[in-house]
Amino acid sequence: MKSIIENLLTFFIALTGLIGGLIWGMNSNWEPEPMIVTIVSFLEIISFIIIKSSKNNTDSNNTPPVNNSNSFTFVVNNEKEITNSEYEDRQKALTRLLFVDDNYTEFKIISILKKAGWINTKAVKDITDLDDSKVIEADIIFVDINGVGTTLFKDQGLGLASALKKKYPSKKIILYSAETTGDRFHKALKEVDSCLSKNAEPFQFINLIESYNK
């Protein structure tokens, strides 16, 4: 700040000297003294402009290069820059998954997802209240077709998934089942966001979650 003030002061003194020298010279038929003052002031102004321009070019050349590599960075909520890998890990930690499955303790995908970074993965045996706090908190809900929703719907998981999608249209509702037969024309199959075999590979569950997490 001090150097800026000093530079501006020098510039204005030189400018004042130039103007004063011109007036003095015109009034004295350009005697040596006013001519010297005018020339010196003019040279000081030119020097100031050249030095200032040179400094700006130097600052421009010292600007860090744009990162064009495959390792992208993001600024989240005015925090420090993070890599794309760190960003993905953060998104995983923020995404809340819920599995509604009467045999969830035997369903290995839940533990696999947690180990893969989806730490907010929860599971319940059934939903008896659509306003259940776990339902409200979840971003993506996986619903088993059989053995759940039995207290609320005669068509079990199909009815539950349909009701959840109608009540929470912004949530992603995914039906899954180990059964290969059943009502293939149930309206819930068209209302939910996706359907998946319970025997699908873990990467298929992960890919589906990631597609909704972008």
Rank of each mutant, 00 (worst) to 15 (best):
M1F: 07
M1Y: 05
S3K: 13
E6K: 15
L8P: 01
F12K: 01
A14C: 05
T16R: 06
L22A: 13
S28W: 04
S41T: 02
S41L: 00
F42G: 12
E44C: 15
F48V: 00
F48G: 00
I49S: 04
I50Y: 01
T58I: 14
N62R: 09
T63I: 14
N68D: 10
N70M: 06
F72T: 11
F72D: 08
V75S: 14
E81N: 13
K92Q: 06
A93V: 03
L94H: 07
T95M: 06
R96E: 06
L98K: 05
F99I: 00
D102T: 13
K108E: 12
N120H: 09
K122E: 08
K125C: 10
A138V: 09
I140T: 02
I141D: 04
V148L: 03
K154S: 15
L158Q: 15
L158F: 14
G159M: 06
A163E: 10
K165A: 05
K165W: 06
P169L: 08
S170N: 14
K172D: 09
I174F: 14
T181F: 09
G182W: 11
F185Y: 08
H186C: 04
K190G: 14
C195A: 15
C195L: 15
K198R: 08
A200H: 07
L208Y: 13
S211D: 10
N213F: 01
